[in-house]
């Protein structure tokens, strides 16, 4: 048995006629960096609101560090750090005032837990007198993380912290998460970015309120049982159009400059496809088998 930090058992949640969560069960181990990967509307925020005691499930139960999220909701609120998807700090307070405010609300001081946030906060400290509303997206996100950490939570829950954040800031943010994990914090993070899955210890792929798969990212990729081919040609726009018309196409999706292609047949030779593409007028055709990405697996499960 793993040493669980978060336990979720049979959670259902319905909003009118929409079943937002269908029988969700999973555990997150102590000190694990666990990713909830899925698009907008998958149910990630609903689950997080239940875990953080802001919403009641219709049925099912959940606990964090052995504390029930419904019965002991007051204790839950002091041991969890939550960064909601919508930026929720006070825009008309300065950087320092926001941090001070959250420390005070939780009955602590910035000084007492400064060690935990130092590496993140030093990056925005030069702007501590600036109004929070005037910060750039990347800086707001660092401040929100600092505020979520200032009471030294056991569990950190982050709802899409990297949505709308540029590629560089996203990479920096994940480095910060690794460092927090090394300090012993259990982290549950939601993201619509499939490429961030590989940075988690384990991930749950979630879609329309249901968990599609839970495992280590590497295991999910290794166990994917379809062959994926990377196809490149002079015009990738025409390439995808022609692949959609091809009789043996199981799926074909654009991946940057390439198309990822899955054939209907498992015993598959590239010669027939190449001939088809040449006939359709394509040049500089390259076809090679590749390892799938989490995004390939996710789209196949959808």
């Amino acid at each position: 048995m793993m040493n669980s930090s978060i336990r979720i058992e049979g959670i259902n949640k319905r909003y009118d006629d929409i079943l937002a969560l269908k029988n969700i069960s999973f555990d997150v181990a102590k000190n694990e960096l666990f990713g909830l990967i899925g698009p907008n509307g998958a149910g990630k925020t609903t689950l997080f609101r239940i875990l953080t005691s802001l919403l009641l499930p219709d049925n099912g139960s959940a606990s964090m560090e052995g504390i029930d999220v419904i019965k002991d909701y007051k204790k839950i609120r002091s041991m969890v750090g939550y960064m909601p998807g919508r930026f929720s700090l006070y825009q008309d307070l300065t950087v320092e005032e926001n941090l001070q405010f959250f420390a005070t609300v939780f009955g602590t001081t910035i000084k007492e837990n400064y060690d935990l946030i130092r590496d993140i906060y030093v990056q925005i400290e030069p702007f501590k007198k600036r109004k929070t509303g005037d910060l750039s997206g990347g800086m707001k996100q660092k401040l929100a993380l600092s505020c979520a950490l200032i009471h030294k939570p056991d569990v950190l829950i982050l709802d899409e912290p990297t949505t709308g954040v540029d590629a560089v800031s996203r990479k920096e943010f994940w480095i910060m998460l690794k460092e927090l994990k090394n300090k012993g914090i259990t982290i549950l993070v939601a993201t619509p970015y499939m490429d961030e899955a590989s940075l988690c210890d384990r991930v749950a792929l979630i879609q329309k309120g249901q968990i599609l798969q839970i495992d280590k990212p590497k295991t999910i990729i290794d166990e994917f049982n379809k062959k994926i081919f990377n196809i490149q040609a002079e015009s990738s726009y025409n390439l995808i159009q022609d692949l959609r018309k091809y009789e043996d196409t199981y799926s074909a999706y654009l991946f940057g400059q390439y198309v990822h292609y899955i054939d209907k047949k498992s015993s598959y030779e590239t010669i027939k496809l190449k001939e088809y593409l040449v006939k359709a007028g394509h040049t500089s055709i390259e076809i090679e088998q590749i390892k799938p990405t989490i995004e390939d697996v996710f789209m196949d499960l959808m």
Binding site: P39, T163, G164, M194, L254, F298, M302
Partner: peptide, 20 residues
């Protein structure tokens, strides 16, 4: 302006079909 933020990977690609 960031038209595809947060959507699922298939819808994101369908949106690009519409852009084309």
């Amino acid at each position: 302006d960031e038209p595809t933020g947060g959507v699922d990977p298939i819808t994101r690609r369908q949106f690009w079909d519409l852009i084309y």
